[in-house]
Design a binder for these strands. Structure first.
Lengths: 191, 191
DNA sequence: GTCTATAAGATGATAGAC
DNA sequence: GTCTATCATCTTATAGAC
């Protein structure tokens, strides 16, 4: 969590975008270098191996996500409102930028990932499910989210639907289908 | 749809498994050749380019899926039963073999795919959503599936949840989470 | 149908100069 | 921090012999 240099930061941002667009196996150090206007050897100076870079990207993504989650806890009026804001995090990636969730992409590619990258993706899901589980639990308590069964189960179902919805939106080049799925998923919890 | 030679068939099967495991960008003609015990030039004899091979794999997968869907229509006692059998198709891939849905993987990788491959993945989703939409429609009619909103919306939501559930199961190496998500999703449709 | 041989380029990574 | 140079290897793909 130390402060990052200017170039190291740009590398992370570009690598993240490329993984979200083409997948972990779909980008190279040369691609990144070309976009910045440096050579691939310079990228290796900042991140020794591709596994190191991938793990750093995933860790940064997960950490930022945690920050956003904390903000939602502050801003969300009630559990239902928090859930809506949560959906907005995913919506931003796919609808505004046409990208997958970074960890959804990495999750699909699990088997071809270096272990250190996979481990970061795992933590993303673990943390998100814990947070979402709390939202459903407080939703059951404050009456803004109606469901039967455990809050953990509905946290899983909701996150799975969001990840799947991003795949849909991309394969059809139709961001609106993400919104449609998200709305149908949320509608089930009111009334 | 002409009859395939022995080797051509093996190539398709191996390529499919590799795409489901490592992704389209995670396998090479050499990988396939090595597993069969031939040279990569021989793979090129059967499928001139990687795009050709990828499109053939996706087309075969989608065609087989259609066959399975037809069988479900025959075997399914009612709409709810058909939906349960449908979930079983996805379950088989992830729980028994630890693989992604082929088209879920391709959908995530959309942006780095040759157009002919993407097009086949698209058709898979289109056909599945049409079929699932019919299931929900008849479920509303025969009373075995209870929901508010359109059958198309619930078809989308269900398929999205299944695709997402496969990502979960793989990232955690925990097939049981697929079952948990699928059950939670189905439970919502029986009152 | 499969092979050898080969091309032409990409890839992850390193050594050492500036 | 960035460069040049280089490496060994992999990748998709083709030509032509068997």
């Amino acid at each position: 969590m130390a402060k990052q240099g200017e170039t190291a930061e740009r590398i992370l941002a570009i690598a993240q975008r490329m993984i979200q667009s083409e997948g972990y196996n779909g980008f190279s150090f040369r691609d990144i270098a070309a976009e910045i206007g440096i050579k691939s050897a310079s990228v290796h100076y900042h991140y020794a191996t591709k596994g190191d870079l991938g793990a750093a990207v995933a860790a940064r993504y997960a950490a930022r996500f945690v920050t956003w989650l904390e903000r939602i806890v502050t801003e969300g009026r009630d559990a239902r409102h928090r859930l809506i804001l949560y959906v907005g995090l995913f919506r931003a990636a796919v609808v505004e930028d046409g990208r997958m969730c970074l960890c959804g992409m990495l999750g699909a590619e699990s088997e071809s990932l270096p272990l250190e990258v996979l481990e970061e993706a795992r933590q993303f899901f673990t943390r998100n499910l814990a947070w979402l589980g709390n939202v459903f639990e407080s939703g059951a308590a404050d009456g803004t989210l109606i469901f039967t069964g455990s809050s953990e189960d509905h946290a899983r179902l909701t996150l799975a639907a969001l990840e799947g919805a991003m795949v849909f939106a991309r394969v059809n080049g139709d961001p609106a289908s993400f919104d449609q799925i998200a709305e149908t998923a949320l509608a089930r919890y009111t009334r």
